[in-house]
């Protein structure tokens, strides 16, 4: 049996009339890539927001390795080992890609110096390797705002990787990435995650990606989880095919 890393129980949240989470129970297991699928507005991002302390659920709990993290702020949860990449990339736009990454590396290493040059920190090499890994090394000295959306998305993921997390939560990692490059990116990402023993949760719309890279898939629908299981089974489920995949 794999260890349970993140465990959500009975999460509920409503925004006015919209019930974005209506009793979410989900475990994220060590060593797995868990895909989350479901139509727009189903509450997938809201789940990630609650799991990382950005939103506080109106009911329910989230725990990480047995510790209750429900009321903790994002920075504390991040430090515990849950990193996040965003649906809309969240970068420091006025700083270069390398500076963005070095800030992440410095944060992780606790290098809060006021005298050492950011770019001279010993993490520099690792950071450059990460940029290589996701294929944006060529943009290292560009300001983040100069990058096209797809590349920003990759930097956003690299920022989360620089934190060497136990679990990486990715919100639609391949949206905005050219369709011809999706496979390559996911190949690289999942093998890097496996190598570094990072478990992952990724929200995904492309069923091909889910089939190839997810060990399990959770299907979201109107704030509820419809079904969880291995992609081979779940994606055959007629209800899922009708409501989520739209066949």
């Amino acid at each position: 049996m794999s260890r349970v890393l993140i465990s959500a129980r009975g999460l509920k949240i409503r925004f006015g009339g919209v019930i974005a989470a209506d009793g979410i129970d989900l475990d994220v297991l060590e060593g797995e890539n868990l895909a989350i699928i479901g139509p727009n507005g189903a509450g997938k991002t809201t789940f990630l927001n609650m799991a990382t302390g950005y939103l506080r659920p109106q009911a329910g709990t989230v725990s990480f390795l047995g510790q209750d993290i429900t009321a903790l702020p994002p920075r504390t949860i991040t430090k515990l080992g849950i990193a996040r990449a965003f649906q809309i990339p969240q970068l420091f736009l006025d700083q270069t890609v390398l500076e963005n990454m070095m800030i992440a590396a410095a944060a992780h290493a606790g290098s809060m110096s006021a005298f050492r040059h950011l770019l001279d920190l010993p993490e520099r090499k690792e950071v450059e390797d990460l940029l290589d890994l996701v294929g944006v090394r060529a943009f290292a000295n560009r300001k983040a705002f100069e990058l096209p959306e797809g590349q920003r998305k990759l930097v956003d993921i690299a920022l989360a990787l620089a934190l060497k997390p136990t679990v990486l939560l990715m919100d639609e990692p391949t949206s905005g990435v050219a369709s011809g490059e999706k496979l390559g990116l996911m190949d690289i990402l999942t093998s890097a995650l496996a190598r570094q023993k990072v478990s992952s949760v990724f929200v995904e719309h492309d069923m091909d990606m889910v089939e190839r890279y997810a060990h399990r898939v959770a299907v979201w629908s109107s704030g509820k989880i419809q079904v969880v299981g291995p992609p081979a089974e779940v994606l055959k489920n007629t209800e899922v095919r009708e409501h989520v995949i739209g066949i």
Binding site: T52, P74, A107, L118
Partner: peptide, 26 residues
Amino acid sequence: RYLDSPLGHMLRAIKGNETRLEYLGV
């Protein structure tokens, strides 16, 4: 020196994207 250091860059990051800074554990 301070502005070029990790602390200085994190200071600029507050202007750039405070949410991301918190999500880096800072």
